[in-house]
């Protein structure tokens, strides 16, 4: 029996991954659910792989075991593929289509994004890929990519928190100055999958 609803959020340092996790976790706590999450700080943040595990339920360990994630929020296509062992069968995968090639590889070494998405589909029938960077830009701020992806996650059928609970958490955990732009990105992300 699974102890928790597990959300694996991954991407590259600086994409606002931890903040997205914190918003989900805080909302879960406010809804009276038990929740643990992991954060990565320090050297790994400098443009390296960053991930956050959010576990809503009875689990105590902050690491999502392999084959457990019910939902993956991948801020970067290559990082979705790197973490694919984390997901359970037919988990929901939200994948941002904008790639960030690692600095140390030569041109052409980065696998084509459509090939990555194709591979991901072999692991789950529920892959939702969209250009969250573009959605964020259209919403008014390139740094609201994380909220666009959060919006998409909230639209998932088995997502354990309501849209209202997440928005409430965004209000409490984001700078008020940027809330409007972030909400716009969130709503566009939500619609991009609903529609």
């Amino acid at each position: 029996m699974k102890l928790s609803y597990d959300i694996y959020i991954c991407g590259v340092g600086g994409q606002g991954i931890i903040k997205a996790g914190e918003i989900i976790g805080w909302a879960a706590m406010k809804e009276g659910m038990d929740v643990v999450m992991s954060e990565i700080h320090g050297m790994a943040q400098r443009g390296g792989v960053v991930s956050t595990d959010v576990r809503i339920g009875q689990a105590k360990g902050t690491i999502i075991p392999s084959g457990h994630a019910d939902l993956m929020m991948a801020f970067e296509p290559l990082e979705a593929l790197r973490a694919i062992d984390k997901i359970r069968k037919d988990a929901h995968l939200i994948v941002n289509l904008t790639p960030i090639p690692p600095f140390n590889i030569n041109a052409g070494e980065y696998p084509p994004v459509d090939e990555i998405i194709e591979k991901l589909r072999r692991f789950s029938g529920n892959v939702y890929a969209f250009d969250a960077d573009r959605v964020a830009l259209e919403a008014g701020h390139p740094l609201s990519t994380n909220m666009a992806i959060l919006g998409a996650a909230t639209a998932m059928p088995d997502f354990p928190l309501s849209q209202d609970a997440i928005i409430e958490s965004m209000k409490a955990n984001l700078p008020s100055k940027l809330f409007k732009v972030n909400l716009k990105a969130f709503n566009r992300g939500f619609m991009s999958l609903e529609g």
Partner: peptide
């Protein structure tokens, strides 16, 4: 046990900003 994915993916070491 599931077989882990054995794809070769480019690494992403941290670097200077």
């Amino acid at each position: 046990r599931k077989e882990p994915l054995k794809a070769h993916l480019p690494e992403r070491p941290p670097t200077f900003c």
